[in-house]
Deep mutational scan, measured.
Amino acid sequence: SGVNQQQLQQLMDMGFTREHAMEALLNTSTMEQATEYLLTHP
Rank of each mutant, 00 (worst) to 15 (best):
S1N: 12
S1Y: 07
V3D: 06
V3W: 09
V3Y: 08
V3Q: 07
V3R: 06
N4Q: 11
N4F: 12
Q5L: 14
Q5H: 12
Q6G: 10
Q7E: 11
Q7H: 15
Q7R: 06
Q7I: 08
L8F: 04
Q9V: 08
Q10N: 06
Q10S: 08
L11D: 00
M12P: 00
D13K: 10
D13G: 10
D13M: 09
M14W: 07
M14P: 01
M14I: 05
G15A: 03
G15P: 00
F16Q: 02
T17R: 11
T17D: 15
T17G: 14
T17L: 14
R18I: 07
R18W: 09
E19N: 11
E19D: 14
E19V: 11
H20T: 07
H20N: 09
A21Y: 00
M22P: 00
E23K: 07
E23F: 12
E23Y: 13
A24R: 00
A24F: 01
A24P: 00
A24E: 00
A24G: 04
L25K: 00
L25T: 02
L26C: 15
L26K: 09
L26Q: 10
N27S: 07
T28H: 05
S29W: 06
S29L: 09
S29P: 05
T30Y: 02
T30E: 03
M31V: 07
M31H: 03
E32N: 04
E32W: 04
E32T: 05
Q33A: 12
Q33P: 00
A34F: 02
A34G: 01
T35A: 11
E36S: 04
E36R: 06
E36I: 06
E36A: 06
E36V: 05
E36T: 04
Y37T: 08
Y37D: 12
Y37W: 14
L38H: 02
L38F: 04
L38R: 00
L39F: 13
L39K: 15
L39M: 14
L39A: 15
T40I: 07
T40G: 13
T40F: 08
H41E: 10
H41C: 15
P42N: 15
P42Q: 15
